[in-house]
Amino acid sequence: MKILVTGNAGFIGFHTARRLLERGDSVVGFDSVNDYYDPAIKEARLAILEATAECCGSEYQLIRDNLAHQPAVSACFAQHAFDRVIHLAAQAGVRYSLENPHSYVESNVVAFTNVLEACRYAKVPHLTYASTSSVYGANTRMPFSEHDGANHPLQFYAATKKANEMMAHSYSHLFGLPTTGLRFFTVYGPWGRPDMALFKFTRNILAGEPIPVFNHGQHTRDFTYVDDIVEGVIRASDQIATPHPEWNSDAPDPATSNAPYRLFNIGNNDPVKLSAYIEALEEALGKPAIKQLLPLQPGDVPDTYADSSELEKAVDYKPATPVSQGVANFVAWYREFYGQ
């Protein structure tokens, strides 16, 4: 297939594009390669994608542009007939959304509108896009289920991703565009973003500097290894969304529709305390952390826990990489990449 992967210089986008190239798909990447974090890591990822395409004999092209630039998106779709679109580009980060909300409007709302419009007119067979567990916000019933409402996000980042889900549904309803939204739960692993906790913790522990441990390490996260995320993304993309035959407008299920629309959680279904996550990192590094215990930050939620049963039912896959193995894999990559 010919597949557009947006955000392919980013963490999850890179891993997804590489897996697609390895299985022989033709991939067009679309990424602005901005400086939200160190562009050197993004360039290194892109170099690997070039090498992977050459090694596997797969077609690969990178478009360096901003998805918020509508003419560039239109030109991309005019040049290529895509069998699938996997939209992973976004302005990520919960805390940064408190500082620069306009960036989230441009990258998560305007850009997604351009992608939806392009998919609509090109009659793309299936659009799969990234959402986030953060949309559950003030929800406290665990584990989080796609069938529960998610109408009280606690950060602007989450609000923009919830908006993406609603925007996708409108296009599925109005234009018959099949869409699948994937709510990612705390993704980690090799080639992760430098603004993420695992990256920061590793850097500080190796440097002998303290690490900030919010909520005194007592909150839990459903940490999900990046390879598990990618497997779920690709399987969901391969299977085109269809209308749910039993959808009832009198008792509407938020996860499905009478339009070709669906939502899935992708999580490890095994929440781990932040303190235990740090212990796994200390074990992998062979060095103890200097912990600076702090209260819960504004916008943070105390716990996340994914019910991934719908994903498993639909695509016959369930994330299962244990945190100890995933953290060790990240540390091995970090040491190699930074020569430590």
Rank of each mutant, 00 (worst) to 15 (best):
G93N: 09
Q155E: 04
E146G: 03
P153H: 02
L127H: 00
Y104P: 13
P153F: 06
N139R: 02
R95K: 12
Y129K: 03
A138H: 03
A90M: 09
M142N: 04
H126A: 04
G137Q: 09
L127C: 00
A89I: 03
T113N: 14
V135H: 03
F77R: 05
H152S: 10
A111H: 09
P143V: 01
F144T: 05
V105E: 10
Y136M: 08
G93T: 06
S103F: 01
V109L: 15
S107E: 12
S134E: 14
Y104A: 08
N151F: 07
Y129I: 03
K123L: 07
Y104E: 02
A89Q: 08
E117T: 08
V94M: 11
Y129C: 07
A92T: 11
L98I: 07
Y96N: 04
V94I: 15
N108P: 07
A159L: 10
Q155T: 08
A138M: 09
S133A: 05
P125C: 03
Y157G: 06
N151K: 01
E99F: 11
V85E: 13
A122N: 09
V105H: 04
F82G: 04
Y104D: 09
C76S: 06
Y96P: 00
L116H: 10
N139H: 02
H152D: 15
E99Y: 06
E99C: 00
